[in-house]
Design a protein around this nucleic acid. Sequence first.
DNA 1: CCAATAAAGCAACTTTGTTGCAATTAAAAA
DNA 2: TTTTTAATTGCAACAAAGTTGCTTTATTGG
Lengths: 125, 125
Amino acid sequence: MGVVRKTKAVKRLLSLFEPGVSAISAVDLVSQLNAEMNKTTVYRVLDRLENDGIVHSFMGKEGIKWYAKCTSCSSHHHNDIHPHFQCTDCKKVTCLSVEVSIPKVENHTIENATVFLTGKCGNCA
Amino acid sequence: MGVVRKTKAVKRLLSLFEPGVSAISAVDLVSQLNAEMNKTTVYRVLDRLENDGIVHSFMGKEGIKWYAKCTSCSSHHHNDIHPHFQCTDCKKVTCLSVEVSIPKVENHTIENATVFLTGKCGNCA
DNA sequence: CCAATAAAGCAACTTTGTTGCAATTAAAAA
DNA sequence: TTTTTAATTGCAACAAAGTTGCTTTATTGG
């Protein structure tokens, strides 16, 4: 951990995560940064940030990848198995700080869980 | 419901869901049926089957779509919000018949939940 | 059987993401 | 500080998953 070098690209990308708590899709990041850097760079910086536990990623309903800042993850352990929520109106995706109880299942060793919720957010309801 | 015509393609596709309880990825279906029908047909048949509540779909970790037979869904309501499980060894995906408690979240109206679990299945553990 | 409608095939395209390699840039060593 | 080394970036080409438009082929209802 702490291996990610704070290059211009890294700083710029991280700045986009600052304003709110929303997650951002890779596609959105690529298009926002289109004029400033190559999409390959965006994808590679995201990879590095994720490996280093600075952001985490998850797959959205439409098969595109979303990224959000980790609050308590390291490169060794992404310990917040929190649900992600997408508003069906404004399409915004947020991390929810709620505990999810992962059910025990006979004959299965569960190592990881992803919970993706959809509905209406406060603004749109 | 009951609108899906039982064409050759539909029957063939449905036959692939019979043997087990596993889910099948669209990619896998396309490649299995490669010699028999066009991939466009596969995708369109799956769409129809899903709209009619005969199968349900969900997004896998790698952004590819998986399909499984519904046990109690109709075109109006997919009522089994069951988790899906993928073995990290054999890559097989199955529907789990377990209840998942969806947390209530303040300021959010939750309409749908997807739970995706990964780990080791009985065979691979 | 025949017209109307739905399904299937085909090719071309879109979107999301990846790879190989050369050119830069930044960090470490001297 | 200069040199050396290693990591990062850009670019173009590619790949996989899925979609679209349009034509052809089946189905079905009269």
